[in-house]
Amino acid sequence: MSLLRDLLRHPSGRIGLIITVLFLLAAVAGKAGLSPFDPLAQDRLARLQAPSASHLFGTDMFGRDVLSRLMVGVAQSFIVSFFSVAVATLAGTVLGLTAAWYGGLWDGIVMRLMDVLLAFPAILLALLIIAIMGPSGWTSILAIAIVYTPIFTRVVRGPALSLKRRDFVDAARSFGSSRRYIMSRHLALNLVAPLTVQITLALAWALITEAGLSFLGLGTQPPQASLGLMLADARNLMEMAPWLLLVPAVALSFAVLGFNLLGDALRDLLDPKTRRALA
């Protein structure tokens, strides 16, 4: 809880936290059906209405309420981001930790495999995976998770290797501590800080990637709402109905900004020294 207090004292941490919490509330409300309108309900009589008291962010070409769609869209984007980063973190931590600890052949296999994955530009790798599995929200989760796994593997392996050489690990070995104990107590515990930072920043990237995939029509599929889809829909109507473009554009950028600010603040607070190692 002292971390929360520090975050609130940190200028960009405070702003990041406020933004992120606001978006989370909107997303939860959207998922819980608390949006002002049914996000899927079309109303032919209320097409392309400018923002007003009843439709705060206006309506789209099918007369759907933009605010309501934004709420479920944010929820959809967050869900994909959270799940994909969670999978990538888990896979990357296990791979990175074991590669660092066991070294040798296993390290070689893992790292060459990661090299192969890293040889693809991120979004192309995601596109390849989607090409195979067909577009959907779940495919996006898998694709983004696979794209970020090598990054987490490296983020864990590097510090784990240097932790392994630290005196306190030698000290533990001199008592005869078991490998499992050393990995969990000395390596994993000290990796929490750099991982927290990396997870926050990865969430920001994942939001961007998810929106990009949906924008291309390869992520979340209509009639479901997502930020990328809303932007794609707005393309041809931007002059007639600028709110259709500006609302999701600002929302997406702010959601990303929130995580970025939070990540920066966490980096300042948790690990001033690992700054370079993670860059």
Binding site: A211, G212, R235, S253, V256, L257, N260
Partner: peptide
């Protein structure tokens, strides 16, 4: 830099086109 990092490229593109035309 923080704003640039947080605005996805394709959003920048859309906004550029939008401002140009408007």
């Amino acid at each position: 830099a923080m704003l640039g990092q947080s605005t996805p490229g394709f959003v920048v593109g859309l906004l550029l086109i939008f401002s140009l035309s408007v």
